[in-house]
Design a protein around this nucleic acid. Structure first.
Lengths: 334, 334
DNA sequence: AATAATTGCGGGAACGTTCCCATTATAGCA
DNA sequence: TGCTATAATGGGAACGTTCCCGCAATTATT
């Protein structure tokens, strides 16, 4: 294995000191006159010198690497968020390490340890079970994806599910629906669900009495959506419209309706939340609240850059990006 | 900023040399007796020492980092491949940096440069335009995702689109179809298309004459699929079945059929390639050839590990994983 | 019992860069 | 003209770990 040229080799060839080469390579030539700089760049070219970021990191304690820790990259919500993160960080010279927590605390902790060991400059995480204290004690700048109150000590960026839910249910009310079902997704985390609050509040605003039997809770899967639809349609008076906690559930409900010979949107309107890719491929295409996934990733990355660069305010921020109604084919007037 | 404890601090506290601490931390205690090892581990615990992987890398020239370079993480084909890569590398203690080439050579080259600068241990890449010579000159162990002949000097892992196409068209033939259309996807790369070869060969095997007007080429988008369907259905004698170059095109064709009042599968059977998530959400669910995306990622990662560990054979390997027919709702007997 | 091999441990040097302080020459100001 | 400030450059040390060789003690072999 041929030894790679170092800054010392470049210095010798250009007839300058290693400090001067470093000034050209790391500081863009600041403090070096143009003639000297040219000599150095030429020597770099002739030798095929490639800077060693590991050695730089030893001295600077900066790696230009961050971690994006999410539950699972194959979940259709996350690739677009990831893309927003990557585009911002890439433009600033950072590389992004991806980690899948699989909704498991032990994995979350292992990745935290990896981040510490590798001296990563920052962490973007959609935490599942890891405690806020553990995140803080890593000593690495961290921004939370999602807006859970358990992490209120950190900057948080997420979608506003409360407002998204209200928008969705308002859309159904505007279409004349009064008997509106809701299929909630079940999480391991016992959190106060913003979707439920949004639904309850918008019904109250509209003067529609709350009927608990119109609310059912299922796993966040398509099969869960199918089960939820079946439950709601076995009621004495089924709902004329259903709000689903996310698109995956909504697609399951849509498929269950088709299988049961219930017309969508003719007999029941269905609306989701998220606007994943598949929402455009159903028949009819799914009406949903579109979460700005790319912008969530982008904004979280911008917050993290501020922390890394020491420019973040000392108080934690909570940024909730509003979703927009994506009116397609699964909702219609009662 | 409090200085973090180093191996020297641990050595002092445990009453041993730094070499002994290193043997405990890096070699699992090999060459250190149990009593000494326990003293070192206790000192590590009390001091909260965290190993510095950057310093290790300086000495070992190993980072335990690899790069996964793909065109775009938001393309529904790639998250599952990525997941296969991550699960294998994660289990071996490697972290994975993700890169999006956006089908642009300049970006590909920039990421290669980043990989060199950061002394990454390996590269997994679905190359678009970057040359084989450039990949070789990086000096970093590299495995190709996909099986393009332009990269025959490297180990390659991909799906067998030739066999996949033959399987799909054979399925249509078995259902009695003889007038079988094909919507091909257009790439910037002028490659000999294995899908086209598979189609031509299987028709010849079945004694069905090739009719060029049954072949149309569109962009790899849903809109492309719509346009391709429209073209084929404007023929004097439309096909009774259509093979689509990937699921995204197939979903577009399915939507165009619905919009044109053409029944699927009653009036035309449609089959895709890939088995992306959305294939399960169409109505009817898409019959397709399921590429083993997770296994492609996994196998490529296993090859890369062999290269990193110096255990790879000196001849390049080409591994093509067969797809399987996923029989759903868009194909039926003529 | 003597010699050879193995085990356990320590200290110096290497890895490749950045930072800091010192020196010299040049430019600017009183 | 003399003094001060600035620009350009160089060399030593730091960053935190691993590797290598040497030494001493213990175990195994002849």
């Amino acid at each position: 294995m041929k030894r790679r040229p170092t800054i010392i080799d470049v210095a010798k060839k250009a007839g300058v000191s290693k400090s001067t080469v470093s000034r050209v390579v790391a500081d863009g030539g600041q403090g070096v006159n143009d003639e000297t700089k040219e000599r150095v760049l030429q020597a770099i070219d002739e030798l095929g010198y490639v800077r060693n970021a590991i050695a730089s990191s030893m001295r600077t304690d900066r790696t230009n690497l961050i971690m994006l820790a999410i539950p699972d990259i194959t979940n259709p919500y996350w690739p677009e968020v990831a893309r927003g993160v990557q585009d911002v960080m890439d433009a600033e010279g950072y590389a992004v390490v991806f980690a899948n927590s699989d909704w498991d605390e032990e994995r979350e902790l292992e990745y935290l340890e990896m981040a510490r060991r590798n001296r990563l400059d920052g962490i973007l995480i959609n935490p599942v079970q890891v405690s806020s204290a553990k995140l803080e004690s890593s000593g690495i700048p961290t921004v939370i994806l999602g807006t859970r109150e358990a992490y209120s000590a950190f900057d948080r960026v997420g979608a506003d599910s409360y407002v998204g839910t209200k928008t969705a249910v308002q859309h159904l009310i505007d279409l004349g629906h009064r008997r509106i079902g809701m299929i909630l997704g079940q999480l391991d985390i016992k959190s106060k669900d913003s979707r439920r609050r949004g639904y309850v509040d918008i019904l109250k605003d509209a003067g529609i009495p709350l009927d608990e039997e119109l609310i059912t809770t299922v796993p966040f899967t398509r099969a869960g959506g199918e089960a939820g639809f079946t439950t709601l349609f076995q009621l004495g008076t089924p709902p004329s419209a259903i709000f689903c906690a996310n698109d995956t559930i909504a697609i399951g409900a849509l498929q269950a309706a088709y299988a049961a010979g219930v017309g969508v949107p003719k007999d029941v309107s269905i609306i989701g939340l998220d606007d994943i890719d598949a929402a455009l491929t159903t028949n009819p295409p799914l009406t949903t609240i579109s979460k700005p996934k790319y912008d969530i990733g982008k904004q979280a990355a911008l917050f993290l850059l501020e922390h890394i660069q020491g420019a973040a305010p000392s108080f934690p921020r909570k940024l909730q990006l509003a979703g927009k109604l994506a009116l397609r084919g699964t909702t219609t007037q009662k």
